[in-house]
Design a protein around this nucleic acid. Structure first.
Length: 559
RNA sequence: GCGCCUGUAGCUCAGUGGAUUAGAGCGGCUGACUUCGGAUCAGCGGGUCGUAGGUUCGAAUCCUACCAGGCGUACCA
């Protein structure tokens, strides 16, 4: 974590030099310490003098020189050189000895970077996927599943106590419609007598279609008694169908390595009267009124576009209401310190009102994070595919995972920022399967494993003390890349966007492949050098394996 | 109409106000081991960063307007 260390060092020196400086003027210009670009012969740099020129009413270069002089006087051991570069950058080079120490730490230590990845004492819940159990997961759900599971993994690696949650909407109109669709399908069977058919008359104009409804109907058919009255029958069917759907969903998700700690059912909120508790609390805030026979939450007063109904004229509750209750449960019954929701883009309009309602209930704004996993546009060649549960036009998660494989699938979705729409071409998915960059990374992992295996056989083991001074510039620059790893994790934990790890891992793999091709790493007549190189390779292997693990992608030793 | 998101190479996408030349992968073209794994490596070609203004010492990045696309805008979930 050189960036943080240098930042603290620079800020201290700065405040000693100019003691009544307003730091807020500096911060708006982005990161204070940045990695030097490749064309520059140093490791890190700061543009601080450029930012200060106006406030201090001094020449940029002059400030840089004054500051650099102070910095050099106070220079800590890990920095080897501090230079001033036009038009006013101060650059830092890292001491090789310090790099070697960290490199050894990565290679030998069970938990390198332990100061960063320690226990954070914060209970975080992350809710994702949460698709209605009225149909199989489709290709669009893969994105949310991959995003949520990777984020969760990385946050818990970072030291938080993280729980994964799937919220099951097992109440309400869509569920009822789903049950009716199944009953409708059952009644179509010619084994059913006319009298029974007449007993249960249903409106099927708006029902769920698709092959899975028929399969489900078949499966449920012999577990029910059609002599029941319609209401009881539909309840029974719905219950069976939801259970069955959920078990399919679990199985689908397991194929992507996605697991949940809790499957939280909406019906539980009713069993525990959470909605009643919530409405009482909200009434105390004077944000509830009755109008036109319905109960409203006055979100417009809090800055939303409009007010929202909680209890409808027919005294049933809205989705919004049970969602508030759901969040109430997370914060006040189960006592999570922080909740992260990953919602599909079609829920983007709910963010504001949900946050407002939770704030009204006393939740701090920053403790409820709602991230959007944007729409996936699906193409088949040049043709757009519209996914619709009702119409039955469908590309399931299963189809895609079977075709492309979990690793390639996870990597593809993980490598895009969650907030941008992306196009998934099913036709090229097969091609993606053979050209997906994930194999490049896995290949590096396999190569490294075998290389180290070979070194062990040749008795080039690390208990012969490596002399890292033998390493070349190229090798040291790979070591610097390894040291970047915790910065990436830190960034992901702050932004809650895990896609940075794919780029980082790919870059690291690329540096290794290039290195591997350009040098014969194990030189049998130069054991000293080989030992040092193998130490570097062990460290690379360790970080690549760690990254694959965090992406929940397999790390094969043979391909 | 209003709200949120997006527009970067032929395609799919990275890019935290900072460094003479804006980066990857795929596709295209040219090459490379008698060697630790060729699922690799070296190279070439490809860009009005949607458009126009503005702020700034400095803008793909911030602001405004416009153009284009997606999603939302229910007493559905």
């Amino acid at each position: 974590m050189y960036i943080k260390k240098i930042e603290i060092f620079v800020l201290e020196t700065l405040l000693n030099t100019y003691n009544n400086l307003d730091l807020s003027l500096i911060n708006k210009d982005g990161l204070l310490i940045q990695k030097s670009p490749n064309s520059i012969d140093s490791d890190f740099g700061t543009s601080l003098p450029l930012r200060l020129a106006k406030t201090l009413k001094k020449n940029q270069l002059e400030i840089a020189n004054i500051l650099a002089e102070k910095l050099i006087n106070e220079k800590p051991d890990y920095i080897s050189e501090i230079t001033v570069v036009k038009p006013g950058y101060i650059n830092f080079s890292i001491n090789k000895k310090d790099i070697f120490e960290i490199l050894k730490d990565i290679a030998f230590n069970e938990n390198p970077f332990s100061d960063l990845f320690n226990n954070k004492q914060q209970k975080i819940q992350i809710e994702f996927v949460s698709a209605n159990p009225t149909g199989p997961l489709h290709v669009g759900h893969i994105r949310g599943a991959v995003y949520g599971s990777a984020l969760s993994k990385i946050l818990s690696f970072y030291g938080y106590d993280v729980k994964n949650e799937y919220y099951v909407n097992d109440a309400g109109n869509q569920i009822l419609k789903f049950g009716l669709s199944i009953l409708n399908e059952i009644l179509k069977s010619n084994k059913i007598s006319q009298s029974l058919r007449n007993k249960h008359i249903i409106d099927s104009t708006d029902s769920y279609k698709g092959e899975y409804v028929k399969l489900l109907a078949n499966k449920i058919n012999n577990q029910i008694n059609l002599e029941l009255n319609s209401e009881d029958l539909i309840q029974k069917i719905t219950q069976l169908a939801v259970t069955e759907m959920l078990s399919n969903i679990k199985e689908d998700l397991s194929r992507l390595n996605v697991y949940f700690d809790e499957w939280f059912h909406e019906t539980k909120l009713f069993e525990e009267n959470t909605l009643d508790i919530v409405i009482e609390k909200l009434k105390q805030t004077n944000l509830i009124i009755n109008k036109d026979g319905a109960t409203w939450f006055l979100s417009e007063d809090l800055g939303d576009d409009r007010d929202n109904v909680l209890i409808k004229q027919d005294s049933s509750h809205t989705y919004f209401f049970s969602d508030i209750a759901n969040h109430y449960n997370k914060f006040y019954i189960r006592n999570f310190d922080k909740v992260i929701n990953i919602w599909g883009a079609d829920h983007q309009g709910h963010i504001k009102r949900t946050k407002l309602a939770m704030e009204a209930l006393g939740v701090n704004q920053e403790d409820l994070e709602i991230k959007i996993s944007q729409m996936v546009t699906i193409k088949k060649g040049n043709e757009l595919v519209k996914i619709s549960k009702r119409s039955g036009e469908y590309v399931t998660l299963n189809d895609i995972v079977s075709e492309v494989g979990s690793d390639a699938c996870r990597y593809f979705f993980l490598s895009r920022a969650p907030n941008t729409q992306l196009t998934f071409d099913i036709e090229s998915a097969k091609i993606q399967n053979s050209t997906n960059p994930v194999y490049y990374i896995q290949y590096a992992h396999a190569r490294l494993t075998n290389l180290i295996e070979k070194a062990t056989q040749l008795d080039i083991s690390l208990d012969k003390l490596p002399d890292l001074n033998l390493l070349s510039e190229k090798e040291i620059s790979i070591a610097m890349k390894l040291i970047e790893f915790p910065e990436i994790i830190d960034q992901i934990a702050k932004e809650l966007e895990p896609h940075h790890i794919t780029r980082y891992t790919h870059e690291l793999a690329s540096e290794f492949h290039t290195y591997y091709q350009s040098e014969k790493i194990i030189e049998e007549n130069n054991i000293e050098l080989s030992v040092s190189r193998i130490l570097l390779c062990k460290a690379i292997l360790k970080i690549i394996r760690q990254c694959l693990d965090l992406m929940m992608v397999s790390a094969p030793t043979k391909m």
